[in-house]
């Protein structure tokens, strides 16, 4: 544990999850709202980033708008084979992230490829390599509001 958050850190984390003003000196604008000098906004943000309270600071892109295709996939992997299957699935660079979840469908991962056909190609490769069906759950509609945590 590197340091505890003080009230100013919490206020800053909350404000920094909202949009950064698109101006020459955006951190000065944020500092004004919080009654902090620009230099302190930057030093606190740098520390919060280094200490891992903030994992990234920058634009959030709509992945689909950048081109490419994405698909949530699920597999029902027998416990005894789990580690072997993890290795085979993760070996595909198209697997962007992969979570073990407590359910009959116990492996959930996202495929990210250049186009929709490649989703099918990779999913079929994984099925051939593992002998386990890859269920495809493509996004049909997103109800996007935001991604915010109260610090």
């Amino acid at each position: 544990m590197t340091h505890q958050l003080d009230d100013t850190d919490r206020a800053l984390i909350n404000r920094l999850q909202d949009d950064l003003p698109l101006t020459d000196r955006p951190f000065a604008a944020i500092g004004e709202a919080l009654d902090l000098p620009e230099s302190e906004v930057l030093s606190r943000l740098t520390r919060l980033r280094e200490d891992g309270f903030i994992t990234r600071f920058g634009p959030f892109f709509d992945a689909a708008a950048l081109g490419g295709a994405f698909c949530l996939c699920a597999m029902s992997v027998p416990e005894a084979d789990f580690e072997t299957v993890v290795t085979k699935v993760n070996a595909h660079p198209e697997v962007a992230h992969n979570y073990e979840r407590e359910h009959a469908f116990n492996m959930w991962f996202v495929l990210a490829t250049e186009n929709a056909e490649e989703i099918e190609t990779v999913a079929r490769e994984i099925e051939a390599e593992t002998g386990i069906a890859v269920r495809r759950f493509p996004k049909e509609r997103e109800f996007y509001i935001g991604f915010r945590v109260a610090a």
């Binding site: 984390i13 949009d19 698109l22 309270f53 920058g58 634009p59 959030f60 892109f61 709509d62």
Partner: peptide
Amino acid sequence: LVKLKERGVIRRIGAAPNHYRL
């Protein structure tokens, strides 16, 4: 960046919090 936001390519510019650390 303003244009990319208007077009929805950028959703927002800000911090990605680490849920676990918070």
